[in-house]
């Protein structure tokens, strides 16, 4: 039954036009950012070396993952909020639970089913922008040095990015179950992500405890994306946790809010 529900949830997500529109927007923004820098350079503007590196391989691959990480969170929040809240508003949850399906099974399956869309959100900017940035690389550098690229790290980068979405999905699910309102859930989830990002940017290096926020732990994992270039090493950053701690920390955030989701859901009366 569990995997049947996962398949059902996949049907619901992948047949939802909102999901594909959001992915197209994410990919579009990522491409525009790369193209903007490239055409600025072509127009004769002097770009700093970092900008040129960001639109050429291998660092363009790191930049694409950054786009997925920072913009993808909002798609994650929107998708999770829609998936959960529409089940309440359409009565799908009532229908399925009335067939003897257990609430924890439903929520666990729902969360499991989100992993594949999250991988897609993490991978799509890199997949869509790679041919474009490969072209920019050829134009700007004359050649692509494939030996500079660590493909395993590209794959791990996608996994790290998708993994760092989990706490946001979990917080959004919690808000969905607590409020049953799409507006409140999306608003709350997006506000949390924005506020947290702002706090981490402004105070991340000053306040020690902020490194335990999902954003900083996601940044800790994203720091390893520099290893996509075989010529790079991970820069030391005292505001970030070691990868192992970040992995555990992100999981704890996800589990905490998922447990709260289950707890609230167990006691809920599902009225029409």
């Amino acid at each position: 039954m569990f995997w049947g529900i996962v398949v059902n949830e996949h049907r619901k997500v992948f047949k939802r036009s909102l999901f594909w529109v959001a992915l197209i927007i994410l990919t579009g923004i990522s491409l525009i950012m790369f193209a903007g820098l490239y055409f600025s350079q072509q127009a004769g503007e002097t770009l700093i070396s970092g900008d040129i590196a960001a639109i050429t391989w291998p660092f363009s691959l790191v930049a694409a993952l950054q786009h997925a990480d920072q913009l993808g969170i909002f798609i994650v929040v929107l998708l999770t909020a829609t998936v959960a809240c529409q089940d309440y508003s359409l009565g799908t949850m009532r229908l399925w639970l009335s067939r003897g399906l257990k609430r924890p099974t439903l929520w666990t399956a729902k969360t499991t089913a989100l992993i594949l869309p999250f991988l897609l959100i993490a991978a799509l900017p890199i997949l869509a922008s790679s041919p474009v940035t490969a072209y920019f690389t050829l134009m700007l550098k004359g050649t692509i040095n494939y030996s500079e690229i660590n493909l395993i790290q590209v794959l791990l980068g996608v996994l790290r990015t998708a993994y760092s979405f989990l706490p946001y999905a979990s917080i959004t699910l919690f808000l969905a179950v607590a409020t049953r309102s799409l507006a409140a859930t999306f608003g709350g989830g997006a506000a949390f992500a924005l506020l947290e990002n702002l706090v981490c940017q402004l105070l991340g290096e000053k306040i020690e405890i902020l490194k335990f926020l999902p954003r900083q732990m996601a940044n800790s994992l994203a720091n390893s994306n520099w290893l996509i270039s075989n010529t790079s090493a991970i820069a030391e950053n005292s505001a970030l946790l070691a990868n192992g701690y970040a992995v555990v920390g992100l999981l704890l955030w996800a589990l905490l809010f998922f447990s709260l989701t289950l707890l609230i859901s167990r006691g809920q009366d599902l009225t029409e």
Binding site: K12, K15, L90, W96, R99, G100, E272
Partner: peptide
Amino acid sequence: QVGAMLGQHGFVPYL
């Protein structure tokens, strides 16, 4: 062992 038909059908409209 129960088949239920609810007032609010619970169907996904875009499927």
